[in-house]
Design a protein around this nucleic acid. Structure first.
Lengths: 209, 209
DNA sequence: GTCTATATTCAGATAGAC
DNA sequence: GTCTATCTGAATATAGAC
């Protein structure tokens, strides 16, 4: 007898509908009615599966937040060439954004409203160690005179900026610079290479002989 | 007889309180009660000055949006050296963000919810021509072989990313990389120089003789 | 212009039938 | 599990005194 293994269709549809609604509108802007409609059910059933709006939200938020920090720790630890690390990091981040384009705006908006609440919700799991590993590799490369002496935090800001910002600013940029969705997609695909090159070009110490 | 020239204190205080509340919480998250409290008045008086929440919001949104595009058109038109243009552009943008740190998140969030509504509200005034002027200068510099052949849109993305993103990601970055407000402020001050150099380093064609 | 008190609206939540 | 109908509460908005 199939002990209900399959996440009954309704529950799954609710989660997907809720994710989209919360991502687009934020917590307060999201409507339970809209979620129910998108999932093809009614509000009562929503409350049957998830007691209330906050429960539903938290479930989605936690899962989303974990995704925002890409799983590249192992790669960083194993790889020695700092330029390859940067290339792979950029690639991983842009790919993540492509698969979840409205994730960062959602996260930043919620964090902005109440950072403490958010981080309490998240950091029962310990602080991610990715940054530490990255720092060590950058530090080593600087000591070997492979890259210029830029402050680590500034370098990370630059990399993350160029990977994530376009997805935050997309609707605005599209208006100001008049390009279509398809052009945007092409640009983002290009950026996997372009951003990595851009970073490397600017930090690399070129030995001119 | 002083024909009420002075924007009676209350109205000014309301606008300032409302700006902060809307910037932090977004339209739906903002509370008229909170605005009234912060302005040191009560809700009824809010409705006396501004008929309703939406009116108040629109007033603030329009003014904010205009600010987001810095007034650098004249500078761009007059200056010939593309590297100086970039330096001044970066400086202007970061300075703007320093004076209005939560402006971009607010704008992007509201635009994300309903881009059409927002742009209808804004673009009675014509499309800003800044981008066009900037494009022409970049194009000219490329034809003179001063800078590498990067696509214009990508270059703009890179510049804006590095100027604006840190202010969007601040609370998140502070957690992940553990730095204080004062360190953040110092970093942003540094970035006026650093970002400009970073960009120029990566697009400049160096004539090695 | 500013207030207290009250009305209205609407979204989240519940009761209960099937 | 799923629905219709209803309740509750919170937030916006208004009436009207001073």
């Amino acid at each position: 007898m199939a002990v209900q293994v399959d996440e009954s269709h309704a529950r799954t549809r609710i989660l997907e509908a809720a994710r989209q609604e919360f991502f687009k509108k934020g917590y307060e802007g999201a409507r339970m009615q809209a979620i129910a409609d998108a999932a093809g059910i009614n509000k009562a059933l929503l409350h049957y599966y998830f007691n209330n709006k906050e429960t539903l939200f938290n479930e989605i938020f936690e899962a989303s937040f974990r995704k925002f920090i890409p799983h590249v720790e192992e790669m960083i630890m194993q790889e020695e060439d700092i330029f390859i690390i940067i290339k792979k990091f950029v690639h991983a981040y842009i790919s993540l954004m492509q698969s979840q384009p409205s994730l960062p705006l959602f996260l930043f908006h919620e964090i902005n409203k109440d950072a403490d609440r958010v981080f309490k919700l998240i950091f029962n799991n310990a602080q991610p160690t990715m940054m530490l590993h990255l720092f060590q590799k950058v530090d080593k490369a600087q000591k070997k005179n492979l890259i210029k002496p830029i402050r680590f935090e500034q370098l990370v800001m630059n990399i993350m900026s160029m990977c994530v910002f376009p997805f935050l600013a997309k609707p605005m940029m599209q208006r100001v610079m008049s390009f279509t969705d398809s052009v945007f997609d092409d640009m983002m695909e290009q950026r996997k290479q372009l951003v990595a090159d851009f970073i490397i070009d600017s930090i690399q110490i070129k030995n001119i002989q």
